[in-house]
Design a protein around this nucleic acid. Sequence first.
DNA 1: TCTGGGGTCCTAGGACCC
DNA 2: TCTGGGGTCCTAGGACCC
Length: 277
Amino acid sequence: APEDVAHAIRGAIRERVGIPASIGIASTKFLAKLASEKAKPDGLLKIEHGSELAFLHPLPVSDLWGVGESTRAGLETLGVRTIAELAAVPLSLLESRVGHANAAHLAALARGFDPRPVVVDASARSISVEETYPADLATREAVAEELLRLCDRLAVRLRRAGTGGRTVTLKVRFSDFTTITRSSTREEAIWLRPDLWDEARRLLDRARVGGRSVRLLGIGVFHLAAAGEPEQLSMGQATVDAVVEAAEEVRRRFGDDSVIPARLVSGRPRHRPQGDR
DNA sequence: TCTGGGGTCCTAGGACCC
DNA sequence: TCTGGGGTCCTAGGACCC
């Protein structure tokens, strides 16, 4: 029975990790997640088949997956606070308030309908790195240098994932917290640091940062495709691959900081983000 | 509440094509 | 010269989640 499985999981977690765990059991993924939240801090809650709506309907809409502060406020202008009230709203009215896709999603969840299958090991759709700086970056040179460092970190992540991306996105947050993105899409995926850096510089130019100071920089790729597709083999490419391979080997032995672009080598202490995985 | 890092998905407008 | 309908892709931004 599901309860037996749940007890076994909770016992195993307590024994091996030493912390309590809560588990929800229900007929859909969403209800099970909600049940586990209601079971916290250290419990087990099963929603019996047939009593789903009795459990769901009195709860506030903010308990729904996909309802954050913005959607919650929008629903409140309709006089909707509970999931029961949401279930009673005509779909067309809901669409006008929260958009087509979100309306369909919320209407379904509010009725306890959630046909999503359990998917194990869904593969990533994008890979990115970003960093908020302890002190804003005040000069164009400082921004470029940090961006190069981020490209290097991204290249390491892509290398380890064995993937590259067709679309590169630059993210810039200014000191007033306004945030912009610039992206560009290529015919072929890229994953090597020099290619990422080329693209990042072009995006930085397009971002018109000007003299504004920068609080956060991020760089990432999506439209992922396996790296190292053999379509453009050449002597040059083979050499680049060998260099990347050698650098990766050194990193494995001496840490991520052991190989960095020459431009970043200086007498200044390097800013080191913690916990680079 | 002055806000870290890494993600997913959606929307809307525009370009471009048939 | 202006006009339809429909589709895909790209770009920028936003909401949301853990």
